[in-house]
C-alpha cells in the first residue's frame, strides 16, 4: 500500500503541490507589488535599481556587513544552512533521476556527486540544529521566538533528516514515504509562512538600499 501512495505522492501529488507552490508565491509577490501601488506609492517612487543592487550585493558578500563581523559564527552557520537547503533538494542526483523519468530534459542537468549531497545534507542538519539551539540559548533570539518559529525550523529539517536516513536504507519505505510527504507539506505551507523571507527579504533589502543610497547618501551594511 505504501508503494501506491508513494507513487501517487511522487507523481500526481508532486505536480499539483509544486504548481500550487509556484502560483502561491507569484500571488504573494504580486500582492505586495500591487498593494504598494495603491497603499504605499512611496515604495516604487523611491525605488532605485542601482542602490538596491548595491545593497543586495554588499549583503551577499560574506562578512562585508558590520553585523556579520560582529556575529561571525551565527552568520557563517546561516550561510552554510541556506546553501545546503537550497542546493541539495534541487541538485541531488536521486531527485533528478526521478524528474527525468517523467520529463525529457533538453539538457544534461547538473548534479551533485552523491557523497557531496550526503555531506551537505548532514551539514544542513547540523547547522539547522545550531540555529534551533541559538533560538533557545541566545537571549535576544529567545525573546522574539514563538513556538511557530521553532516548529517551522523543525518542519524544514524533517525532509532532510528523513532523506538522509532513507538514502542509507534506514526505516525502509515508510521513511521514504515520510520524506516525500513532509517535503510536499513544506512546499504547501511555505508561501504562507516566514520562509517567504527568501523572496520578501529581497524586497525589503532593495527598498532600504534605495533609501540609503539615493536619498540618504549612506551605506547600509
Amino acid at each position: 500500500m505504501f508503494y501506491s501512495i508513494y507513487t501517487f505522492l511522487v507523481e500526481e501529488a508532486f505536480f499539483y503541490v509544486f504548481s500550487f507552490f509556484c502560483i502561491a508565491i507569484i500571488f504573494r509577490l504580486a500582492y505586495f507589488t500591487l498593494h504598494s501601488l495603491q497603499n504605499d506609492p512611496i515604495v516604487l517612487k523611491f525605488f532605485n535599481l542601482k542602490y538596491a543592487l548595491r545593497s543586495l550585493i554588499n549583503w551577499t558578500i560574506p562578512f562585508k556587513a558590520r553585523n556579520m563581523r560582529l556575529n561571525p559564527i551565527t552568520f557563517f552557520v546561516s550561510y552554510l544552512f541556506h546553501i545546503c537547503i537550497i542546493l541539495v533538494p534541487i541538485f541531488y542526483s536521486g531527485h533528478i533521476f526521478i524528474l527525468e523519468e517523467y520529463i525529457d530534459l533538453p539538457f544534461e542537468p547538473p548534479m551533485l556527486p552523491d557523497i557531496l549531497s550526503d555531506v551537505l545534507t548532514f551539514l544542513a542538519l547540523v547547522s539547522g540544529i545550531f540555529l534551533l539551539l541559538r533560538r533557545i540559548i541566545y537571549p535576544p533570539a529567545r525573546y522574539v521566538s514563538s513556538s511557530k518559529d521553532f516548529g517551522l525550523l523543525l518542519l524544514v529539517l524533517i525532509p532532510f533528516l528523513t532523506g538522509f536516513l532513507a538514502v542509507r536504507g534506514i526505516g525502509g519505505d515508510f521513511l521514504l514515504f515520510l520524506h516525500v510527504l513532509s517535503a510536499e507539506l513544506l512546499l504547501l505551507i511555505l508561501p504562507f509562512t516566514r520562509i517567504m523571507h527568501m523572496f520578501l527579504g529581497l524586497f525589503s533589502r532593495s527598498y532600504t538600499g534605495s533609501e540609503f543610497g539615493a536619498i540618504r547618501h549612506a551605506k547600509d551594511w
Partner: peptide, 21 residues
C-alpha cells in the same frame, strides 16, 4: 489600510534577534 512596508516587514522578519546589537 496599512502601508505595504508595514505588511512586508511583519511578514519578512524571521525573529532572529540579530538587530539587538
Amino acid at each position: 489600510k496599512a502601508e505595504t512596508r508595514l505588511k512586508l516587514y511583519t511578514s519578512t522578519c524571521i525573529h532572529c534577534g540579530l538587530c539587538a546589537e
